[in-house]
Amino acid sequence: MSNNKVSRRQFLSYTLTGVGGFMAAGMLMPMVRFAVDPVLQKKEGGDFVLTEKKIADITEVPERVDFTFEQVDAWYKSDITNSAWVYKEGDEIIALSPVCKHLGCTVNWEADPAHKNQFFCPCHAGRYEKNGKNVPKTPPLGPLDQYEVRENDGFLEIGKAIPNTLV
């Protein structure tokens, strides 16, 4: 019996070693980041990714535009391809994120024949209006995110995702 018991001294030394380890890790992590970060930092304006889409070719019908950027994850570099639904509203160019606000599937334009003029999520039949507004009584609880956009020499550049400004 008694040899199963952990003495007060043992208990303290176990827990303190554990906590100490965490603390050391906690101190080390920011230091490593601090040391590594400047090398990995993006150049000014590097937040926008050039696409192959000509501004002049964008119409009122949402069209899928892919854009690829390099992501550095710790020591691992990889090319990530994202896409956006892009259309023209008057003179303005709108780029919406295809990521469903329910559980993250990819939505498609007019993918459900029963609901023209809407985005459709095949996972649980979530729907969004053209401006990204979620249709009530379908699973998504918020509108699709929007991307920052700008023009570069006639081509579309896509920036970071921001909360939807249209709804």
Binding site: C100, H102, L103, G104, C105, T106, C121, P122, C123, H124
Partner: peptide, 9 residues
């Protein structure tokens, strides 16, 4: 790509 499309299901 299947995972990416149907992530939520």
């Amino acid at each position: 790509v299947i995972e990416n499309q149907f992530k939520g299901r």
